[in-house]
């Protein structure tokens, strides 16, 4: 049971990923193919984000922060903090000193990677769609086999 609850997210994500892959392989329609790529892409995002989840944690937005603003208090708190963190402890999960003050946060690093990947994803999707639009203008169809036929005709006529 523990194993199932600990791994079901991967299995679901792989199922979704394969759904996307199936759409890409099985259909000859270029717009539907791009939708399939979108499904595949989203499932990769889900894989990364589910890796960053920490049980019982909260989103990586810090709750307690030394107040920034009024001069001496800030500098004091900051120097205090920097003085008490030896350089190594940041890398050592078992270190005694905890600047997070006991609050557990999910891992922010995959969030950053995926956030930018989503925006880049839509930009590249737009390039794909633009190509599909041009293909339609040139061949009058967006079905793979019909495009192949049209290409073949052009080649036969040329030779």
């Amino acid at each position: 049971m523990d194993f199932f609850v600990g791994h079901f997210n991967y299995w679901v994500i792989i199922t979704l990923m394969m759904t996307g892959l199936y759409v890409v392989i099985s259909t000859g329609n270029l717009v539907k193919k791009l939708v399939g790529i979108g499904l595949f892409q989203t499932s990769v995002f889900q894989l990364y984000i589910s890796l960053s989840k920490v049980r019982g944690a909260q989103p990586p937005i810090l709750e307690k922060l030394p107040k920034y603003g009024s001069a001496e208090k800030t500098s004091q708190t900051v120097t205090e903090l920097t003085a008490t963190i030896p350089q190594v402890t940041a890398l050592d999960p078992a270190s005694v000193y905890d600047p997070l003050m006991g609050v557990v946060y999910s891992n922010p690093l995959p969030h950053v990677l995926i956030l930018t990947a989503i925006v880049v994803g839509v930009a590249t999707l737009a390039v794909g769609l633009a190509l599909v639009v041009r293909i339609r203008e040139a061949y009058g169809t967006i079905e793979e086999d019909a495009i192949d036929e049209a290409e073949y005709k052009i080649e036969v006529n040329a030779s």
Binding site: H7, K53, L62, A90, L91
Partner: peptide, 27 residues
């Protein structure tokens, strides 16, 4: 690693380091 494992390699080193360092570096 199991879903939500706080000690998984991804969650315990770099990610934790960024969380801790943000407090003092960038605030």
């Amino acid at each position: 690693p199991a879903f939500g494992d706080p000690n998984s390699p991804a969650n315990s080193y770099v990610g934790l380091m960024y969380l801790k360092a943000t407090i003092t570096d960038i605030s």
